[in-house]
Amino acid sequence: MSGVISKAIQILDLLLPHGTEKDMGVTEISKALGMPVQSVHRILSSLSEHGFVTQDPKTKRYKLGLSIMKYGFLMWDSIMLRTVARPYMEELSRLTKETVYLSVRENAEGIYIDSVDSPQILKISEPIGLRLPLFIGASNRVILAFLSPSIQKSLMDSFNWDEIPALKPLTREYIEQELMNIRQKGYAVTADEATEGTTGIGAPIFSYENTVIGSLNVAGPSIRFGEQNMEKYSNLAKKYADLISNELGYRGRSRQE
């Protein structure tokens, strides 16, 4: 299997444009890479099925497909998100004196991709790369809440509700009601779900395509998240998430207008 994957990568590399669009025939690719024609044809068929290459029906020549562009844009979005978000994260942490996280979605999970630690001795400090199902924690649940209804339902159907890695019982009915509340408020709040004695506030970040691509989160010990701070931190999280979204090219109407 690894040999086939290696050959597929070689073919994709060969079809990479250099200034102008590049297309090649099966025999041409076979000679360039020293691969049997049948092998090249078989690999191209598989790549074509998944949109990584496309074949011109007239010339029968192949070029890179839209799937390559899609994954390229996803990677670019991730890099851009971290670059754009960092100064806002630092400002949000300075104003709240709490830990601030940046999260993104990968399939049915949310992942921390950056953080700014609280300057206080008692603080939350979760590792970058931490993964949890999208229905656990404010940082993840707010992403789930703003996904399209079809994607949201598909993800909800895929979760194993009998084996939930949370510190408190969570049911599908409870989460569905929570998602409705989050969409109305524009942010999510959770406590004692991933880590005992902690509270998190998450606000959604949207891309230039007007789709949710991540969340900005304030997290800390629950004893510091009283009613007054909860309102202040929620407003700040929404404000800075909106600023990040706007800088990424989000064209939707700001929740604060």
Rank of each mutant, 00 (worst) to 15 (best):
R105N: 07
M180Y: 15
T99G: 03
Q152V: 07
I143W: 04
R94H: 07
I136M: 09
L102N: 07
A85H: 00
E163G: 08
Y112R: 13
N107R: 14
E106K: 15
D162E: 12
I182K: 08
P87H: 03
I121A: 14
E163D: 14
V104C: 04
A145W: 02
Y112Q: 12
S154E: 15
I124E: 12
E106W: 14
E126S: 07
Q152D: 09
L167I: 06
N107F: 11
L144D: 08
I79A: 11
Y112A: 14
P149G: 00
F159E: 10
Q152I: 10
S158Q: 10
M180F: 15
R172V: 07
I151G: 02
I124R: 03
N181T: 08
R131H: 11
F159Q: 08
R183D: 06
E98N: 10
F135S: 00
S150M: 03
D162Q: 11
S118D: 08
R131V: 11
G129I: 11
V84W: 04
R141M: 10
E106Y: 15
P169S: 12
A108V: 14
I164F: 04
N160G: 07
A108Y: 13
M89G: 06
T171G: 03
S125H: 13
P149T: 03
L130Y: 14
S158P: 01
I164G: 08
P127D: 13
D114T: 04
E176C: 00
L81W: 06
R172A: 08
E178C: 06
L134K: 02
N181W: 09
L134Y: 10
L102E: 04
I121M: 09
F135V: 00
K168M: 13
Q177C: 03
E106N: 14
V142Q: 01
F146S: 02
P127Y: 14
L130D: 06
D157I: 05
I151E: 15
D117G: 13
Q184K: 11
S148W: 03
G129K: 07
L155W: 07
I128G: 01
L170F: 13
E176W: 10
E91I: 02
E98K: 09
I113N: 01
Q177G: 11
R82H: 06
K153P: 03
L95G: 00
L147M: 15
A108F: 12
V100F: 05
A85W: 01
V84T: 11
R131M: 13
D162R: 08
L92F: 05
A145V: 00
R131W: 12
S139W: 05
I111N: 06
F146D: 01
A138M: 13
R105L: 10
I136F: 11
I151C: 00
L95Q: 00
S148C: 01
I124N: 09
P165C: 06
I151M: 09
I79C: 02
I175P: 01
R105S: 12
L134R: 04
M180I: 14
G110S: 09
V84I: 15
S115F: 02
L170H: 11
S103G: 14
N160R: 04
E90Q: 13
A108C: 10
K168D: 12
S139M: 12
R105P: 05
L92M: 03
V116T: 08
K153M: 15
I79H: 04
S125F: 10
T96K: 00
I175Q: 07
P127G: 14
K123S: 10
